[in-house]
């Protein structure tokens, strides 16, 4: 399956790209995607503990199963107000 990934805030600079698509196994979990991204973007891996992840419009946990065409958003802690 193909999933789309987008980064926000300073994670765009750390990842060196704003959006990308990745092919994963059909039974892939969110954690599988995050491991791929940590390998590809080591600077993001260093911020693992302060990384928020959403699938679609909802926050997601690493054990969540992904589906074809999912939009995964990765960003630092939010700061509205």
């Amino acid at each position: 399956m193909i999933v789309r990934v987008q980064f926000f805030s300073y994670f765009k600079q750390l990842a060196t790209e704003e959006t990308l698509s990745l092919e994963l196994q059909d039974d892939a979990l969110l954690e599988d995607l995050l491991q791929r991204l940590r390998s590809r973007f080591p600077k993001l891996a260093e911020l693992n503990r302060s990384t928020l992840v959403a699938v679609g419009m909802e926050y997601a946990s690493p054990g969540q199963k992904l589906s074809d065409g999912a939009l995964v958003s990765i960003f630092p802690p939010v700061q509205g107000g």
Partner: peptide, 14 residues
């Protein structure tokens, strides 16, 4: 509302 916004609404400051 303000407290929850600061926890979960995806807005960032630069």
């Amino acid at each position: 509302l303000i407290s929850e916004m600061k926890q979960r609404v995806p807005i960032w400051k630069q």
